[in-house]
Amino acid sequence: MLEILEDNWLLFLIGQYPHGPVGGLAMTLLLAAAGLSLSFPVAIALALARLSARRWLRGPATAVVYIVRGLPLIMFIFWTYFALPLLIGHTVGGVETLLFALIVYEASYLSEIIRAGIEGLPKGQVEAAKALGLGYFPTTFKIILPQVLHNMMPSLVRQFVSTIKETSLGYVISANEVTFAASQVNNQLMTQPFEVYGLLALTYFTLCFTLTSAARWLERRLTAERGGLGAQPA
């Protein structure tokens, strides 16, 4: 196992870079980070639309979220893989395809986290903003969202963890992330699948476990903040 690692650690870490495209774990992290951050504005828009008093905003947004949440990610990857080139008229690489599918998928899940956060804020916050004479946009962007995003930091880290795991599906469309790198190594070696995929598992686990622990730590800090010295009565 150590030997495999010695021979291939660079491929695992960054793929063929600098002789070829970035790949491996670096691409996995890049994809997860880009997928989550690009889906963020979409998620905020979806969440606000779902909470809107206007039915023509609420209806479609709710439909999108329900549909996406009712389908497995691999479906979106296939759909994007086959449909996106037709729509834009030229071929799309595996990484771009995966990124696009991730944005659509994560936006729906994130929007639910954001929506729950908005609904969980004490009602008095919105009332105080209204009473001051603040309109919808300043209330949303100066009062509500800053608090919601602060409160949802742990959930955000958890969502990052599941996004990291989801990028492994990029393997089926040859997006060269870390699972793809591992399978390349496996194809070369032919005889040591347990060792190779064991290393892969260890990589994912270390990463995800560390991040999940960070999420727990964040959560404890937030709880202390809320319950500690002079939390505001609801």
């Binding site: 004490p122 008095g124 009332e127 105080a128 009473a131 001051l132 608090q147 602060h150 609801a234």
Partner: peptide
Amino acid sequence: LRQRVGFVFQAFNLFPH
């Protein structure tokens, strides 16, 4: 209109952030 009418709540409702 709300800018011309100050309102003070029982639960203060300060913005904690």
